[in-house]
Simulated scan of single mutants.
Amino acid sequence: MKYWRALLHYYLSQLIPGLALFFLSWAFIDLIWAMGIYILLAHVVGYLAFRSFYAEQLNFYNNLGFTTGRLLLNVFYINLLLLLVLAALISLILWVLF
């Protein structure tokens, strides 16, 4: 339970590049494709940005017992859950409007 704060800090610090990828792909492609690209690539882009800007903090996460694969997997699960909620909300709004 004490590791949730560290995982939340990691997730929030890599969320901005993932959202930038989502909005760029939404602007140039389509919303459905942007959601697919986000779920497949956002955690990788976020990890690369985190490794570039906060490289010294990766030792902190390794000392807590988080491996790189476990961090990426946890972020993938969180992104999947949030994307499913977003997709349900968008479909509900479109169902009500049309």
Rank of each mutant, 00 (worst) to 15 (best):
G69D: 04
I32K: 14
L48A: 12
L24Y: 06
G36L: 05
I37K: 02
I32R: 14
L83I: 12
F76H: 09
T67S: 15
L8K: 14
A34C: 01
I16A: 15
S25G: 04
Y47P: 00
A6H: 06
L31M: 12
T68N: 10
Y47G: 11
L72M: 08
L81A: 15
W95G: 06
F98I: 06
W33S: 07
L72N: 01
G69E: 04
W33G: 05
A6C: 00
F76Y: 09
L48W: 09
R51T: 05
L21P: 03
L12D: 06
L83S: 15
Q14C: 07
F28I: 12
W26L: 10
A87Y: 10
L8E: 08
H9G: 11
L80F: 08
L86R: 01
Y47H: 13
G18E: 03
H9S: 14
G65D: 03
Y47V: 09
S52M: 04
S25C: 11
F98Y: 05
A27S: 13
V45Y: 02
W33K: 06
L40I: 11
I93Q: 11
Y77I: 13
R5P: 01
L64D: 03
A27E: 05
S91A: 09
V75A: 10
L71Y: 02
Q57K: 15
L97I: 13
D30H: 13
Y77H: 02
L83F: 07
F60E: 09
L97V: 13
A20F: 04
E56N: 10
L80R: 00
K2N: 10
T68G: 09
A42L: 08
L86F: 11
G46M: 06
F66D: 03
F28A: 10
A27N: 07
W33C: 04
L48M: 12
L41M: 09
Q14R: 10
Y77P: 00
Y77M: 07
